[in-house]
Design a protein around this nucleic acid. Sequence first.
DNA 1: TCAATATCTCAAGATATGTTGAGGTGAAAG
DNA 2: CTTTCACCTCAACATATCTTGAGATATTGA
Lengths: 118, 118
Amino acid sequence: MNETQALDALGALAQETRLRIVRLLVTAGPDGMAAGTIGEAMGATSSRLSFHLTHLEAAGLVRSRRKGRSIRYSAVYDALSGLIAFLMRDCCQGHPKVCTPAVAALSIPACLPSEPVE
Amino acid sequence: MNETQALDALGALAQETRLRIVRLLVTAGPDGMAAGTIGEAMGATSSRLSFHLTHLEAAGLVRSRRKGRSIRYSAVYDALSGLIAFLMRDCCQGHPKVCTPAVAALSIPACLPSEPVE
DNA sequence: TCAATATCTCAAGATATGTTGAGGTGAAAG
DNA sequence: CTTTCACCTCAACATATCTTGAGATATTGA
């Protein structure tokens, strides 16, 4: 991830509705969710939702594919991990004062580097 | 770091000049840099620089203190690590597909949890 | 005290972002 | 093949963000 991509991703996440959509889609798994289901969860009108989903997709944080009548959106895990890696490595130069507490704060065994990635 | 603080931090970083200022200040260390020096590095006019520094300070990513004639700005490491931790833990629920590659991408020994934090 | 230096503040204008509501499009059911 | 469903697109508007330039404020040195 380069600076431009990171700026796009940061801008996409810097908005309440979009941050919540990403949160929802991360937990939804690879199959994602239909736009309508996301809209209900967000309490957003269809056009507002579409605006934010389009924004997230343009930033590469989310992808979509039609499935029958509905369109399913899912999180792009690579983009999310890429952004976090960018913040630690490129933005903060891997500075121990930033990265060590950040990684330590995880304290979720499944997230430590020793665990295999599926 | 809660959602509101994270949104502020993301919004603050989602701008080229501000992202570069943070980058610069992280490497500058705890003493930080004088506003004028940052301005030269950014090629920004004093009022534009002041606007962005104020924005970063309001978001808690940077702090300032007067030292003689100049005002020195420095990175707030806690806020940066807090944002990264938020993204991994709260936003991405510590999802292995996001967090494992992100941490692995660091591959900087000083940043791994086994290292002590100064 | 006066001038120089370093930075901030403010108003104005340009551009970007987010919301709403009306209407359009593709897929499936009858 | 017409209707319904799920979603998108577009125009209009309100608000927020960023930049510029003029001028104010705080600190230091002559």
